[in-house]
Amino acid sequence: MAIASSTRAPFDRVTLLAAPAVLILCALFLYPFVYGLWLSFAPAAGGALANYHKFFADPFLYGTIATTLWLALPVTILNLVLAVPVAMRVRLMHSQRLLTTILVLPITLGVVLIAQGLLTYLGPQGWFNRALMTLGLVSHPVRLVHDYWGVFLSLFITGFPFTFLLTLSHVSGIDPALEQAAATLGANARQRFFRVILPLLAPGLAIAFCLSFVQAFSVFPSAILLGAPAGPTRVISIAAYQAAFEDFDYSMASAIAMIMGGVQLAIIAAVLGLRGLAYRGPAGGGKG
């Protein structure tokens, strides 16, 4: 046995083909990140941790974490909770492609266009409020824009197609025979979902959650256009923006960006940790 398994594989020159990609990654991602990290520890005044001290001492700054989470978490959870039943239904449909196209359309519109549209549609003189008043459901226009709910809705509209597509691919991966088998064994629709479908879907949903959450957490345009950037929707990215372009304190802005990344990482780590507890094998019923 001359070829022992402990000997390492010889260097394959084909690997060099990855070099341009690695280079671009370093230049566009790794370098700015490391530079930002270094910048955050080099404040205009005070010690290396001065920016971080400042952030966590000022409720106007550290409060943005809670504000952003308060937007991003409910939106992400709502997206997932709605995406699963819709995907379950769409999987069985014949005109799947048409419906998927309609659902995915908002992605192509861009955040700003949707924010502009919602601004007029949901505003005090918009169709939505006028319809409610005509129907006699409310006597005064409901305040939706320049408030929490405007941003919430816009995040929902832009985030849902994305979450839906991710969920649909996971739902389609589950062998329909499993549900049929569960039915012949006496499981009703509810039991089939919670005992068979959901456990198999959980790892995929965790990934969908992470990706949707990161998208929602970095909300910026709609928080400014549709929200109340000084109040209920003063999200963390606004704090970073103000530090950088109103106070011209790049070091502080970098520190806020690092904190933002840290919070996202913590949530994702927690979700992926939970995912580790779930079954992660193939979701087919038969031989592989």
């Binding site: 062998d175 499993l178 088998a181 569960a182 039915a183 499981a187 005992r195 019923g285 038969g286």
Partner: peptide, 27 residues
């Protein structure tokens, strides 16, 4: 189907991949 109470063996077996043999049989 869940009200009929027939036992069915599928062509591709359709075993629940996340359950062990005991839990599959006990389902």
């Amino acid at each position: 189907p869940e009200e009929r109470g027939f036992g069915m063996v599928f062509q591709n077996y359709a075993l629940f991949p996340h359950m062990n043999v005991r839990r599959n049989i006990g389902f």
